[in-house]
Design a binder for these strands. Structure first.
Length: 729
RNA sequence: GGACGGUUAGCUCAGUGGUAGAGCAUCUCUUUGACGUAGAGAGGGUCAGAGGUUCAAAUCCUCUACCGUCCACCA
C-alpha cells in the first residue's frame, strides 16, 4: 500500500478497459433490471472520430454507466454508418488519385469491392477510438448500416412502404449534383450566399413585359411569364401567348397568373423555367405548362437550348446570353445582389435542378392506421406533440415542427453504386417490388441505391433484429435516450420517428437529447480538410480519457456549442491526479482499519450477475461514527441526491462541476485536512477512518460515469470487484 | 423574410427576483510526509444599451445594437 505512485498515470487506461470489457457487463444479457437503451449515432465508417464525437461519446457513456450502476439492464449499442454519398465520393477520389481511374472505368462490382475494403479498415480505427474514450458499449451487438441484417431491414421497410403506396416513382424536378453525379434530398442542399448579378431584360423587342433573373442561361428553357393576378400593370396580358426569337432559339411564352409571384421584387414578373427550377416546376404544374429541358446532368447546355449556347457549360452560356442581350439592346438593368447558391452538402458542387425519374417517400398521402386516417407527416407530428418523444432542449421542438410543416416528398433514390440497392425489378413495363428478387430470369434490378438516411432511419430497431421478432426488439425498443448533435435533427431524428411510427407503430426513443458542436478556441468549426481537426486519441495519450471527458462536458449548457481548449483538459488531468492523491492519503491512513467484512475474492464467484453490489459488504456501520464525521457523511448524502437529480435531468455539466468542486474544495481541502488531527488521536481515529473511506468510495461511485478510468483504477487498489457495477449510492 | 441562441472578471462559462460566482490566467506567500499536476491568500466586473414592472432586476416585460445558427421558391 505504501507503494502507490505519487501521480496518477493514464497509461494504464487500456488495461482498465480490458478489465471492463472482459467482465461481460457491457452486455445487458449479464445484467438484471429494467431495460435502458441508447443507440449510438453511428459515425461515418470511412472517417475517424473527432473531438465532437468524443463529446457525444462522453454524454452517452455517462448515461450508460449511471444507469448500469442504478441497476438497469443497460444497453448501449455501437455501430457505424456506411454514409453512401460521403464514402462513395471519398473512395472514388482516392481511386482517381492513385490509379487515375473513376468508378466507371473499373465497373460497379469492382468499385463496390474497393469501397468495402476501405470501410473495413476504417471501422477498425473507430472501434479503437471509442474504446480509448472509455465507451462502455456492447460490442457483441455492434451493427453497421450496410451489413446483411440491416439490408434485410431496409428491403423490408421499402416493401412495406411501397405496398402502402407511400413510396412512388416519378419524374420531378429534383436537386441534381453534377459534381457527385447523383440526386440529393432537400435537406442535403446547403445554401451559400454569394455576390451575383440580377439581370433585367425582355425576351425580344416586342415582348410587353420585362423579367429579372440571376440565371440568364436557363431562360432558353422558359415557357411562361408569371405575374401576380392582382398586379394591375400586367392584368391585361394574362392568358396571352407570344412567340419570341430569343438567343438563337424560339420560345413560346404564355403569360400566366400565380399568387406566389411577389409584385415588389424585380419587375414583378417571373420568367418560368419549369425544367430547371423547383419553384417554377410547381408553377408549371398549376398552370399546365410543359417543361423544356435545356441543361444536362453535366451542367452543360443541350441541343434544345439553341445553337448559340448548345454544348457550352452553364457558366459560359450565361456570359454568351448576357452579351447577346446587350447586343440586341434588350438588357435594361444589371444589379449586384446577394444571392443564395444551392450546393450539395457532401460534394459542395452547385446544384442544378433537373427533371428526373426518381423514387420518393410521400409524406402527405393519407392512409389508414388503427381505423383512422393519417399521413407520415402527421405521424411525425403526433409523436412529439403527444409527448411520446421528448425533445431536449425544448427549444428544438419548434424547429422540428417548422421542418415538418415545410416538408416535401423525400427523394430517396441516389445514382450511386455504394449503398442499399432499391428492391425493385423490371421486365418490360412490369414492376416488381419485394424483399427477395423474382425467381424467374429476365428481370433487371433498379440501378439506383437508397439515400443513406433511409437505412439510418431504421437504426433503433434494425439494430435489434427487426424485421425478425427476436427478444432484443421486445426488450429494448422503444429505446430510452438518443443523443445526437442538433445538426442531424432533420436528417436523422425526424426520419427515425417517421420509420418507427410507421413500421412498428411506436416511437423510436423516449427522449432525444440534442447536443451542440465543439468548436475550436476561435469559435470556428474544426475542419479536417484545413488540418485543424483534433484526434481525441492524441489528447487522451497526453492527458487521459477522463480529463478529456470532463473538459468536454463541464461548462457546456444543453444543446449549446462549446469551445475546445487544451488548457481545460490539462486542468482536469490535474483533477484526476487530485483524486488519485486524495485516495492515496485515505488508503495509506486506513490500512489498519478493520472493516466489518473483507471484500470477497472476485475469482471465488462463478456467476457474473452474482457479483453485482459486492462492494456494499465492505461498507462500515454508521454507528461507529462520531457526530462530526456523521455530519460530513450526511452532507455528502445531500450531494448524492443533487447529483442524481441532475443526471435524471440530463444536466451533466452541473453534475460534473459540482462533483469536481466538492471533491477538491470540500473533501480534499477541508475534510482531509481536518482529518489529519483526528487520525492522530486514538479516540477519534477509527471514526475518521470510517468517514474517509466511506466518503471516498461514495465519491468514486458518483464520479465514475464521468471519469471511469481513474475511479476504477483507485477502486481496484482495494477491491476485487468492479466499480463499474457497484450500486449507485 | 421568419425562428432560435448568445452578449456577466483578461479568457471559457455558471448564475432566472433578494447585497455579483467558478475554472484558467495574473500577483503575493508556502520546498508542511496525499498531491507543486499542490496549498494559503489577493487583485479584477457600472452583468451589451435604453426604457418599464417591483420594496428589490444579471434575473421579468418592451425596444435597440452587435455576434452566431437554422429555416425560407426574392425570380
Amino acid at each position: 500500500m505504501q507503494n502507490i505512485p505519487k501521480h496518477y498515470n493514464q497509461a494504464g487506461e487500456p488495461n482498465v478497459y480490458k478489465l471492463w470489457e472482459s467482465s461481460g457487463y457491457f452486455n445487458p444479457d449479464n445484467l438484471e433490471g429494467e431495460p435502458f437503451t441508447i443507440m449510438m449515432p453511428p459515425p461515418n465508417a470511412t472517417g475517424t472520430l473527432h473531438i465532437g464525437h468524443a463529446f457525444e461519446t462522453s454524454i452517452q457513456d455517462i448515461l450508460t454507466r449511471y444507469h448500469r450502476m442504478k441497476g438497469d439492464k443497460t444497453l448501449w449499442l455501437p455501430g457505424t454508418d456506411h454514409a453512401a454519398i460521403a464514402t462513395n465520393t471519398k473512395v472514388e477520389k482516392i481511386l482517381i488519385k492513385e490509379e487515375g481511374k473513376n468508378r466507371h472505368d473499373i465497373g460497379r462490382e469492382a468499385f463496390v469491392k474497393k469501397v468495402e475494403e476501405f470501410v473495413d479498415a476504417s471501422r477498425g480505427t473507430i472501434q479503437k477510438q471509442l474504446r480509448t474514450i472509455g465507451a462502455s458499449a456492447d460490442w457483441s451487438r455492434e451493427a453497421f448500416t450496410f451489413d446483411e441484417p440491416r439490408n434485410l431491414a431496409v428491403r423490408t421497410a421499402f416493401k412495406k412502404m411501397y405496398d402502402e403506396g407511400l413510396i412512388y416513382r416519378g419524374t420531378r424536378v429534383i436537386n441534381w449534383d453534377p459534381k457527385g453525379q447523383t440526386s440529393v434530398s432537400d435537406d442535403e442542399v446547403v445554401h451559400k450566399t454569394e455576390k451575383g448579378q440580377l439581370y433585367t431584360f425582355k425576351y425580344s423587342k416586342d415582348f410587353p413585359i420585362a423579367i429579372a433573373t440571376t440565371r440568364p442561361e436557363t431562360k432558353v428553357g422558359d415557357v411562361a411569364v408569371a405575374v401576380n393576378p392582382k398586379d394591375k400593370r400586367y392584368k391585361k396580358f394574362i392568358g396571352k401567348e407570344y412567340e419570341v426569337e430569343f438567343a438563337g432559339t424560339k420560345l413560346n411564352i404564355k403569360i400566366v397568373a400565380d399568387d406566389t409571384v411577389d409584385p415588389e421584387f424585380g419587375t414583378g414578373a417571373v420568367g418560368v423555367t419549369p425544367a430547371h427550377s423547383i419553384t417554377d416546376y410547381e408553377i408549371a404544374l398549376r398552370q399546365n405548362l410543359k417543361p423544356v429541358q435545356v441543361i444536362n446532368e453535366y451542367a452543360r447546355m443541350i441541343e434544345a437550348a439553341g445553337a448559340l449556347v448548345a454544348g457550352k457549360k452553364t457558366k459560359e452560356a450565361r456570359e454568351i446570353i448576357v452579351s447577346w442581350l446587350k447586343e440586341n439592346g434588350l438588357l435594361e438593368k444589371t444589379e449586384d445582389i446577394d444571392m443564395n447558391i444551392a450546393t450539395a452538402e457532401r460534394s459542395s458542387g452547385v446544384i442544378e435542378p433537373l427533371p428526373k425519374l426518381q423514387w420518393f417517400v410521400d409524406v402527405n398521402k393519407e392512409f389508414e392506421r388503427n381505423g383512422k386516417k393519417t399521413s407520415l407527416k402527421q405521424l411525425m407530428h403526433n409523436a412529439v406533440r403527444s409527448g411520446g418523444v421528448k425533445i431536449l432542449p425544448e427549444r428544438f421542438e419548434k424547429v422540428y415542427f417548422n421542418w415538418i410543416d415545410n416538408l416535401r416528398d423525400w427523394n430517396i433514390s441516389r445514382q450511386l453504386w455504394y449503398g442499399h440497392r432499391i428492391p425493385v425489378w423490371y421486365k418490360g413495363t412490369t414492376i416488381y417490388c419485394d424483399i427477395e428478387p423474382p425467381k424467374e430470369d429476365g428481370w433487371t434490378q433498379d440501378e439506383d441505391t437508397l439515400d443513406t438516411w433511409f437505412s439510418s432511419a431504421l437504426w433503433t430497431f434494425s439494430t435489434l433484429g427487426w424485421p425478425k421478432e427476436i427478444q432484443d426488439l421486445k426488450t429494448f425498443h422503444p429505446t430510452s435516450v438518443m443523443a445526437p448533435g442538433y445538426e442531424i435533427l432533420f436528417f436523422w431524428v425526424a426520419r427515425m420517428i417517421l420509420m418507427s411510427t410507421f413500421l412498428l407503430g411506436e416511437v423510436p426513443f423516449q427522449v432525444v437529447y440534442l447536443h451542440g458542436m465543439v468548436r475550436n478556441i476561435e469559435g470556428k468549426k474544426f475542419s479536417k480538410s484545413q488540418g485543424t481537426g483534433i484526434d481525441p486519441v492524441e489528447v487522451i495519450q497526453k492527458y487521459g480519457a477522463d480529463a478529456l471527458r470532463m473538459a468536454l462536458v463541464v461548462g457546456v449548457g444543453p444543446g449549446n456549442d462549446s469551445k475546445y481548449d487544451e488548457m481545460k483538459v490539462k486542468g482536469y488531468r490535474n483533477f484526476a491526479n487530485k483524486i488519485w492523491n486524495a485516495a492515496r492519503f485515505v488508503l495509506q491512513n486506513t490500512e489498519d482499519y478493520n472493516s466489518p467484512q473483507p471484500p470477497l475474492k472476485l475469482r471465488e464467484t462463478s456467476s457474473l450477475t452474482s457479483r453485482r453490489g459486492l462492494g456494499k459488504k465492505a461498507q462500515p456501520k454508521a454507528g461507529a461514527l462520531l457526530p462530526a464525521d456523521k455530519k460530513i457523511l450526511e452532507e455528502l448524502d445531500s450531494l448524492v441526491k443533487s447529483i442524481t437529480k441532475q443526471l435524471e435531468k440530463f444536466d451533466f455539466a452541473h453534475a460534473a462541476e459540482d462533483l469536481y468542486h466538492y471533491f477538491w474544495h470540500t473533501f480534499a481541502d477541508k475534510i482531509i485536512e481536518e482529518s489529519k488531527s483526528k487520525l492522530a488521536d486514538e479516540k477519534t481515529r477509527a471514526s475518521a477512518q470510517l468517514m474517509l473511506k466511506t466518503a471516498l468510495e461514495t465519491q468514486l461511485k458518483l464520479l465514475h460515469p464521468f471519469m471511469p478510468f481513474v475511479t476504477e483504477t483507485v477502486w481496484q487498489l482495494t477491491h476485487e470487484d468492479l466499480l463499474m457495477i457497484q450500486k449507485w449510492p
